[in-house]
Design a protein around this nucleic acid. Sequence first.
DNA 1: GCGCCGTAGACTGTAGGCGAAAGACAATTC
DNA 2: GAATTGTCTTTCGCCTACAGTCTACGGCGC
Lengths: 225, 225
Amino acid sequence: MLSTTGLPQGAVPKLERPGPLRDRVYEALLELITTRALQPGQHLVESELAGHLGVSRQPVREALQRLSTEGWVDLRPAQGAFVHEPTEEEADQLLTVRTLLEAEAARLAATHAGTEAITALEELCEEGERAVAADDVDGAVAMNARLHAKVMELAGNKVLAELAAQVDRRVRWYYTPVARQRGHQSWIEHRELIAAIADRDEQRATAVMRAHTEHTRKMYHEREN
Amino acid sequence: MLSTTGLPQGAVPKLERPGPLRDRVYEALLELITTRALQPGQHLVESELAGHLGVSRQPVREALQRLSTEGWVDLRPAQGAFVHEPTEEEADQLLTVRTLLEAEAARLAATHAGTEAITALEELCEEGERAVAADDVDGAVAMNARLHAKVMELAGNKVLAELAAQVDRRVRWYYTPVARQRGHQSWIEHRELIAAIADRDEQRATAVMRAHTEHTRKMYHEREN
DNA sequence: GCGCCGTAGACTGTAGGCGAAAGACAATTC
DNA sequence: GAATTGTCTTTCGCCTACAGTCTACGGCGC
């Protein structure tokens, strides 16, 4: 399986090909939805979006189709696509599921993690703490996402990872105002989590992660009062 | 909100409307895949399917799109759709996730279930046992699915239910040869589960359901030897 | 004989168009 | 004046057509 060209394997930029149009439309729409440029309940007219993005209706339709199966838009027959309107109940259920998935990921990570993986986690944690100390909210949020993603990767379960990724994005969409406020305490909990994983302590890793994600739910409900 | 026509409210058959074509194509293809009429790895040519189903390529494309996001087919760019080939690793991961989701459903069901719900569960269980006693394998499998669906319904978490439904169908696809053999023991475990739910015992319900789904995994691995 | 290149076929990706259903609004009737 | 009905516009669902890309095979040079 060796290349005969002598070129290093990864160095070739792969001849940047702008993948299928539908995927780019999908990402564009997802961006517009998560940033609230398209508001919940809004009617998404295919021809309008197509014109706005400079493509035909077909790729737009396929992107909407996918967004529908992932729960971002509701596709009412013969009426079109509407940005999904999250309810309190659904948000709560989503958090329940996220807690479940993340806790399992922590447990699996505790069973599989090697030493080099743990140092990687600690580096991510440090970087996140630096961002918090520097009041870099966006950076802290980004590092938080990367840390959780790393834990999920260590769990080594792709099915779990895929589900968690979807649930996570939707949770972040619902809770954007909240998530940005949880700065300091969050990273203390991250430290505990890493320690538990390093100790190969499944029980504790699960418990810590469960408590960690449940805190987000509490924050949300407190905000309502 | 009374009708002035004098027609009985529910008796009108609602004018059977054959929903969107893409949905029917989706279900047709899903049926073909789960029944192995379309084998794993097989190249699905859009025009072929379209001609075979008597529709144009468009609904077929949209159905394939959806099947792709749900993990039934792989969509390689500029090459088309291929029926997903399940690997040992993936099957195992899928089972892990299913165990997780079902166990959580059992826990939630134990916290919410009312008395009438429990009698409903027991009726389903009885019917399943009758099917087993009568060597009605298809009937037993169907009742098994309905029982699990009922537990999921009692959990009252729609997000969880949707994820579990998807995972479940794929598990059933991977394990069809196995699932059909687990007849008798399975229903004993169901009885235990219902008892735990009736006692509002979250811990026990979770543990029983976990053991129950894990048995399927064991059966699978034993089969390989 | 072996390997490379070019060409042809097949299939996907995208665009545009037509018929039909749903909602809005105005005209009409009681 | 209120309800109903007819019409009209908007938008979707599906089909057809065309362009781009990948694969396979046969010819050509070494």
